[in-house]
């Protein structure tokens, strides 16, 4: 891996995923113990009402402290945040997050594109984005924006993804800095940490 591309000032790692991405996360999260200098934000497509179960599920799978996102929640390094269902998750100046119930984007709310684009505006080159498994085109536009703003973009290796459509779509339309399987994604996150 090209370790030199790892951003030393990374403040936020944002992960987007749809169908099959929970599986990938369940392989990564149990191996993650502390986040030193950055916050981890997870934006997944999910059905309207299973809010708590996803957060609970993630909570029991990792040692990293998980925060439930409410409107204007401060984004603090060391914590893991999960985008709530039925809201778009946006980033504000001054390290807080806000929520928005506007129309679905790519049939999704939260939409990965919306969160990625918003994070790119605030965090620019201190952002790392990871796009996981899924069967929808969400995320690709957001990755482009993040790369243009100087952030690092990583796509799950379609071969290791339960649903390769989303990673493939991103690979076709962007030039990811890395294409990694779940093991390598874990290693990458750990290396951002050190």
């Amino acid at each position: 891996m090209a370790e030199d591309k790892i951003n030393p000032k990374c403040k936020v790692v944002i992960v987007g995923g749809s169908a099959g991405s929970l599986n990938a996360l369940m392989q990564i999260l149990p191996e993650l113990y502390v986040l030193n200098a950055f916050a981890l934000v997870i934006v997944l497509h999910r059905r309207g009402t299973d809010d708590m179960t996803l957060e609970e599920l993630i909570k029991i799978k990792t040692e990293v402290p998980v925060k439930i996102i409410e409107d204007k929640e401060p984004l603090v390094p060391g914590f893991l945040y999960v985008a709530p269902s039925n809201y778009h998750l946006l980033f504000e100046k001054g390290e807080t997050m806000s929520l928005d119930t506007s129309e679905k984007v790519n049939y999704s709310r939260p939409s990965i594109d919306v969160s990625f684009e918003s994070a790119a505006e605030i965090y620019g080159d201190s952002l790392v984005a990871i796009l996981l498994s899924g069967s929808n085109a969400d995320g690709t536009e957001g990755l482009k924006t993040i790369q243009n703003a100087g952030g690092i973009i990583i796509v799950q290796d379609p071969q290791s993804a339960d649903m390769p459509f989303m990673p493939n779509n991103a690979i076709r339309h962007t030039t990811p800095d890395f294409i990694l399987n779940t093991d390598e994604i874990l290693k990458f996150i750990i290396s951002v940490n050190s």
Binding site: K72, L90, F91, E92, K93, S98, D100, S102, V114, S118, E121, I122
Partner: peptide, 9 residues
């Protein structure tokens, strides 16, 4: 108004 949403609109 929260800027992120306002800017999108």
């Amino acid at each position: 108004y929260s800027r992120a949403s306002l800017k999108r609109r």
